[in-house]
Amino acid sequence: MTIEKRPNATADKNVPTQAPERAPIIAPGVGPKLPGPPGVPGTERFRLLAYVKQESMVRVDKRPDETVLTWPHLLRAEFLMAMLITALLVVTSVFITAPLEEMANPSVTPHVAKAPWYFLGLQELLSYFNPTVAGVLIIPVYLGGLLIIPYVDRTPYKAVRDRKMIWIFFLCIMVGGLIVTFIGSFFRGPGWNWVWPWDGLYFNL
């Protein structure tokens, strides 16, 4: 591939900067010099050869078995999964009825008032800390922390050992969240006191 490069008047013409390291570089001046626009000194063109790193999916050295056709391979997988989930849902729904208690009554507080299960971790944490502190810390750390993960971990490496810090952070909020959600769901009873699940389950889906 031939690139025409025109360094501006102040740049050092002897350094062809953009070429990749391993690419054989034709030394400046070897290629034929071409005249620049008239009356502007130092704008001569010269040519050089460079390898451009391949980035598109269509590789020249593509082996024949690297990809498969979407129809049928991917569509079959999707269809089977959809059927499996449908079957699972229908069977579950036939045998397990969604809970429905008595009609809402603002003047009767149940002995256990719990948020939906995915917020029970937060509810559990709110019983440890001052709610203002907990709210100020936990919600932004969780949501904001998840949002900025790709902008904090900038390395291209994916192995666990190459991104230890972000793994630790992620594991902390995931495992920590799982534990407090579990405690809030199954180990808390009236008055938010500790209750073993076999002594009474205070959990609604």
Binding site: S107, V108, T109, P110, H111, A113, S127, G191, W192, N193
Partner: peptide, 23 residues
């Protein structure tokens, strides 16, 4: 003001309002 449960009438043992939900 904790999590919005309804506070029951004065507890006759402690003479305090004692919230059932989270104590």
């Amino acid at each position: 003001p904790h999590l919005g449960c309804q506070v029951p009438q004065l507890c006759d043992r402690s003479e305090w309002f004692e919230c059932l939900c989270h104590g």
